[in-house]
Design a protein around this nucleic acid. Structure first.
Lengths: 126, 126
DNA sequence: TTACATTTGCAACCAAGTTGCATTAATGGC
DNA sequence: GCCATTAATGCAACTTGGTTGCAAATGTAA
């Protein structure tokens, strides 16, 4: 049903994404907001923000859930074909503005494509 | 250190991949072999088979670990740039022989690229 | 201000994967 | 084939990301 009430928890979470341009893992959010809200609330609010296409989620390298602000997504059409890049050194994750070309797969209908690239980011690349 | 001894567990696991051409989730393997070996052993043997490049692993749609036979991988060079396809209906996962073209990303060094496509497979596509 | 549905906190739970350690079983040398 | 060595296994307990049920708190429309 998405977000109905602008509660303190919703504002706190949105604020985290406003002050940070890259993706944030749920684990980090729970840790960072541990004094201000319960982990159950973190999970539930993130769920709703994703329903409303304000955030989108994906899985990082260990299967942990990450969230990032949606850019150019509407409730009707969620545009999540962009790849995500995770640094194997510092663990940071970014959404890449690039668009990956997924070739037609015979006998299959592709609905979702998830691309996770791993390597060294700008800061960690010596 | 990889596989050193050809134990019963190793043979049983390899046998599962021989009789099945698509990828198998660890969960399925543990379930299927529950009478013949412990889940700890399943995890440990799979680890070693991956070290030896006999199997390769990747994460399915819920972050669960899947394994599949390596094809054209050697201990020196592991070729895992192929995408994986998971059916959203039956859950089956296949390695696709296609090769995805990952564009150069500025300021970043890409070492691993993981592509998970989701949709309807041949059997479930009405 | 009130009423009521939505949201939250809490505690208990679930399940995938890991760890430590004592026991078992491959393997190489004889 | 037998034995000693050491890798591999089983087991039970644990870790941890994520979920659930329910009572209490809180946002909002009237």
């Amino acid at each position: 049903m998405g977000i109905v009430r602008k509660t303190k928890s919703v504002k706190l979470l949105l604020n985290e994404f406003d002050k940070n341009s890259s993706a944030i893992s749920v684990i980090t959010l729970i840790e960072r907001l541990s004094l201000k809200m319960n982990k159950t609330t973190v999970y539930r609010v993130l769920d709703k923000l994703e329903e409303d296409k304000i955030l989108h989620s994906f899985l990082g390298k260990n299967g942990y859930k990450w969230y990032a602000k949606c850019n150019g997504c509407s409730v009707s059409g969620h545009q999540d074909a962009h790849p995500h890049f995770q640094c194997s050194d510092c663990g940071k994750v970014d959404c890449l503005p690039t668009n990956i070309l997924i070739p037609k797969i015979p006998n299959r209908k592709v609905d979702i494509s998830q691309v996770l690239l791993q390597g060294k980011c700008d800061d960690c690349y010596v």
